[in-house]
Design a protein around this nucleic acid. Sequence first.
DNA 1: TACTTTTTTGAAAATTAGTTGAAATAAGCG
DNA 2: CGCTTATTTCAACTAATTTTCAAAAAAGTA
Lengths: 227, 227
Amino acid sequence: MKILIVDDEKLLVKGIKFNLEQDGYETETAYDGEEALKIARDKSISLIILDLMLPGIDGLTVCQKIREFSSVPIIMLTAKTEDMDKILGLEYGADDYLTKPFNILELKARIKAILRRVTNQNAPGAKSTLSVGGIDLDYNLRRVKIGNKVIELTAKEFDLCDLFVSNPGKVYSRENLLDIVWGYDYPGDIRTVDVHVRRLREKIEPDAAAPTYILTKWGVGYYFKEN
Amino acid sequence: MKILIVDDEKLLVKGIKFNLEQDGYETETAYDGEEALKIARDKSISLIILDLMLPGIDGLTVCQKIREFSSVPIIMLTAKTEDMDKILGLEYGADDYLTKPFNILELKARIKAILRRVTNQNAPGAKSTLSVGGIDLDYNLRRVKIGNKVIELTAKEFDLCDLFVSNPGKVYSRENLLDIVWGYDYPGDIRTVDVHVRRLREKIEPDAAAPTYILTKWGVGYYFKEN
DNA sequence: TACTTTTTTGAAAATTAGTTGAAATAAGCG
DNA sequence: CGCTTATTTCAACTAATTTTCAAAAAAGTA
């Protein structure tokens, strides 16, 4: 999985690069549109993170030009509130966008989501599932199965569960969870997370008062433990 | 599904080829009209992507000649704004066109739309039915039978019903349904889907308020459940 | 143990999503 | 063209989810 990062702020590129490589991705970097196009054309790239504001050819044009020869997933970085529907629409054909300043966890979450969508492209009827430590996630019906019991989850519950189960052992602070599941600019109360964790526990734990899957790391946050 | 790509720009052909193969299509390529005609004649081709400007015989003539022996769907690629109505009209008989430079995602969307339209067409008079989980679809008369009750459906209702029944368990968002049933470029309101689902339910469900076939996945979309 | 901090819990309010009926518009047909 | 039927839009209504709030419980600390 090689990711191309395109931005003229070298420090930002460096930061993203470091973070993605921590997660095991390979990276390529470009600081302007020309360079980006060249790399996108010549190298085997799985995903592109592309800033809207670039010296020379701007990001949208780069996006457009890439779409002339490739359908590689593109995440646009935008400084202000642009006409996002247009960016995501067929005219430019980006796959997702983030508004600067963004949270690196959210960027990672979106990369993961897009890559899953692309690599999991399922034939109609085929099921897309993830099975970790006794929990089966069904991404089609967005519900989970534990043992042979099917459990219906609400949208937020499923997203939360997905994040935990996809990253067993990783402790997420409430802030992290708000950033990732609710969006990095979510303005609401941090306690919202607790309530959702509780309801998730009520649904998936045999005994919600003594959780075995979603555990509390006291003073830090929550994490998923494989059973 | 084999797609023939005809263009004299080898790099472009290579790009399209790569992208379509990524999506699981087989491809054939030709760089001029003679070659294209030969392949269209000799091999089993499901769709042709044909450039208007070709060395030797031009694209329109190729299109015309192909129409003498085949009704294979043809998407024309045009460099400038030609008289598109003429290209799509009876004289040449292309099925769709794209103006260069085009977006690869849009090309894919159109290929998908055309192939869906074509493969869903049944030979006239041929008796074709599908029976899944208690529902019998009659593609000839475009109506359904549940138990021994015959239910007449309108065009959209049948298309919708067909999609659901053909893909049991697969959840479709309203956007998906608009794309598939109404066409990828349908500009209308998303709520249209709800209304059609409701009327389909009124016709096929014993109790529309407590559906057993077309179920709602809250926050996601609708799906068909076999009974 | 007494105190502080953090987490859990229950319940109500606010918001969002889905359903439904009816009216407006468009399409098909004699 | 005028009639009928199908489709789309709109808005009120209902249901489900999400958020907020505050009190109770549990965990850490001195």
